[in-house]
Nucleic acid binder design. Structure first.
Lengths: 154, 154
DNA sequence: CCCAAGAAGATGATGCGTCATGTACTTTGC
DNA sequence: GCAAAGTACATGACGCATCATCTTCTTGGG
């Protein structure tokens, strides 16, 4: 297997810069969100999706598909959020195996208070560092890679 | 605080696509590297840096600065890699507090065997999905964001 | 109908990352 | 040359992510 197509210098630099940005940015967003609101990025995502849900409630499997999380990750995470009083569960009459997840008042309040600061941080650290053309380019780039990913594993 | 500068549609789409790409790509790379070689991305990074080191050995604090990891993460990770026989430690005569980390033969073999497949995967899933211009654009974009990050917290 | 296949969700074990803190050694300022 | 401050590294606790597995219920083919 010595016919490996190694990365060129440019490719390697870009790839490493990307990885470094990704790590630093995620860590920083998480850190700030955590200290400002006590929420993790994962909590935030769950709460956003619940807020956006038509009836304010979702089946776990719907949440799972929207978040693209593993089923067991979601299940564990919902348990922890439940313990912290951010979400609650309701029985599902249509399917006795299933359940509904909904926001508690505390959950709604947490996301409402956290959102402005978080968006502001995303803006300051990321969006404002880039030109509109770069934003566009990034969107295209991400979609291209996502397409690759979806082709390569179904 | 109702003067939040929310994200425009374009910005939001780009940001979400980026997040989604980031998550899916990292997960996929990790999964493939893990099943192919038993190494995690973190293991891989440590091994690469040790391989590249002039004397084949590094002080943990050097490794830490190169990887941009938290000190305690590195310490824990090296312990685990030590248990698995991938690295070993040596005393540091110049500074009795410190130590050296070096590759074991198993560690060198692991990275040697894992690298071609991993690079090939990065290429197939990421680099080959993009044009050279996009690679360039990504590099610039990442550096800009990194600059922001470094300004905003030292 | 019934039973086999499959979907919804929970759970326990394990490795990982962070935070707070501890220990040992080195450097610095007087 | 010595005390105080700082540096190198380790450790325990805790929340998070994944894997394998389990239970409960639904569904679809005979």
């Amino acid at each position: 297997m010595s016919d490996t197509r190694w990365l060129s210098d440019d490719e390697q630099r870009a790839w490493r810069s990307y990885l470094r940005m990704q790590n630093r940015l995620t860590a920083e967003l998480n850190r700030r969100l955590q200290t400002a609101s006590g929420l993790s990025l994962a909590d935030y995502d769950v709460l956003v999706h619940l807020t956006d849900a038509p009836d304010g409630r979702l089946r776990p499997y719907e949440l799972q598909r929207e978040l693209h999380w593993e089923q067991s990750r979601l299940s564990h995470h919902l348990s922890r959020m439940h313990k912290r009083g951010l979400v609650r569960r309701e029985e599902c009459d249509e399917d006795k195996r299933g359940a509904y997840v909904l926001l508690t008042e505390a959950g709604r309040q947490a996301i409402t208070e956290a959102a402005p600061d978080h968006v502001e941080t995303v803006r300051r650290l990321f969006v404002d560092a880039l030109s509109p053309e770069q934003i566009d380019a990034l969107e295209r780039l991400a979609v291209q890679v996502l397409t690759r990913l979806e082709i390569s594993d179904g």
